[in-house]
């Protein structure tokens, strides 16, 4: 963590190591991929020039959020049921063509 207020109080802040999660990373200055890789993230999908989906640990994602140029790091997940419903609705529409 960059904020060192807790150190002045002699406190110790730690995050339990958790499994990786999926995060939407949005940059305000360009490609966020190099920064994501610095924090040990894996690129899952590139959405456009400034937005990517990446796998990161929560603690690393919170650190990434404080990086200059990073506008947003938000946890996301894929709702498989909703994805299936969407595909089914599109398939039905396609069959009518």
């Amino acid at each position: 963590m960059q904020n060192d207020i807790y150190k002045r109080f002699g406190a110790r802040v730690s995050f339990a190591r958790g499994v990786e999660g999926l995060f939407l990373v949005v940059s305000s200055t360009g490609d966020p991929e190099p920064r994501v890789r610095v924090f040990g993230g894996q690129i899952v999908m590139r959405l456009n020039k400034t937005k990517i989906l990446a796998r990161l640990e929560l603690a690393k994602a919170l650190e990434l959020l404080k990086e200059p140029g990073i506008r947003k790091v938000g946890g996301v997940h894929l709702d498989v049921e909703r994805y299936k419903r969407f595909l089914a609705s599109q398939a039905n529409a396609h069959n009518h063509l």
């Binding site: 999926l22 989906l53 709702d79 969407f86």
Partner: peptide, 19 residues
């Protein structure tokens, strides 16, 4: 391939995680 259709990420089931 069928012509690509623009869809939002929310539409295809990518949801924000609430803690």
């Amino acid at each position: 391939n069928q012509d690509p259709v623009p869809v939002s990420l929310l539409q295809i089931g990518l949801m924000p995680t609430f803690y």
